[in-house]
Design a protein around this nucleic acid. Structure first.
Lengths: 181, 181
DNA sequence: ATCATTTTTGAGCGAATGCTCAAGTATATT
DNA sequence: AATATACTTGAGCATTCGCTCAAAAATGAT
């Protein structure tokens, strides 16, 4: 997963995978059907972790809205982190995979799932009165996801941590503006 | 450029390029040094067009701020468009290229240039009194660019034009909120 | 028309790709 | 201990990759 996340699908060769998995080609093809199936498995794992991390973050906070804001602000620390890539593996893959391929649907399904998690948190926030009763939680969820996409892309080029923090704060503040006064 | 934009650097083979350019390998390597140099040339061309399009849009409108908002709203029509990809070629490339490679700097330079164009428009808006005198135009420019990144990524998965329009409107409205009341 | 120069051609190079499979090694069962 | 079953090995397959270069064709100069 680390390898595919860092280098992308095409740039990751089976030699790379042999080294990372410490397996010979035969074993790899016995365990996973082929390169693409292995890639799908890593996408599954990544998406699984991403969603459960997000759910944990939401569950840990009494205020779902504050949790989402906190998540956005947390993206400021993405620069110095030792992750394979600051960018979201699902977004990277979405942009790399052909438009009409079957992988496309696979990836979007996972992205939809994340959107659902965010939407669920917003509904909970609404139930708690943090959001106006007439607020469109789905719409807001998609907007927040776009913020995450954008910030994680930005983290690939923005070297200044302060500037990154500024942007995270700005976008987090926007979510706060959707809250009930 | 179309080919690299649609398929990405790694997924575009020289066979593909031979077909698209209607040139044999020898001619390609005589005209462009190698695959990577050709790729850089296409990135140059893309960035050039992108910036000049944006500048033209800004120049055509009396209000720079309205021009930027219009640009964001225009991204709603990205779905049905016949472009090679709804995503920004620079962003696609940024995510595909290795973190430490020389191509990275090349791409970020172009992205910085676009940021400068947006920032320039915001300064003009400020001079016209559309933005408060103390507004941080650079910071706002980066935020708008993140909106563009995010929306263009979203356009890769969002099939519903209405939802896309909603999001574009929301983000355009967000810019409007920075304007002087 | 002749010759010098530039451009195009495409067969094919070495290396790398994703992948296979017979042979070998480990594990489990009796 | 003997046998059956499962997993691992790695040489090497067919194909494709990015790329080269001598020869042919087109172009320009005289």
């Amino acid at each position: 997963m680390t390898l595919f996340w860092a280098k992308g699908y095409h740039a990751t060769s089976l030699k790379d995978l042999e080294g990372a998995l410490k397996m010979k080609p035969g074993s790899i093809y016995a365990a996973f059907q082929n390169k693409e199936t292995l890639f799908r498995a890593t996408l599954d794992r990544y998406a699984q972790r991403m969603t459960s991390e997000m759910q944990a973050l939401i569950a840990a906070s009494p205020s779902p809205l504050a949790a989402l804001q906190g998540h956005l602000e947390g993206l400021a620390n993405l620069t110095l982190c030792d992750r394979p890539s600051t960018a979201c593996m699902l977004v990277k893959s979405l942009l790399e995979v052909p438009r009409e391929g079957e992988l496309r649907g696979f990836i979007t399904t996972h992205l939809d799932r994340v959107e659902q998690v965010i939407g669920g948190a917003l509904q909970a926030a609404q139930a708690r009165g943090e959001l106006p009763p007439d607020a469109d939680t789905g719409r807001l969820a998609r907007r927040i996801q776009i913020y995450i996409f954008g910030l994680k892309v930005q983290a690939q080029r923005e070297t200044d941590p302060d500037r990154m923090r500024e942007l995270c704060e700005d976008l987090a503040a926007e979510i706060g503006r959707a809250a009930t006064p």
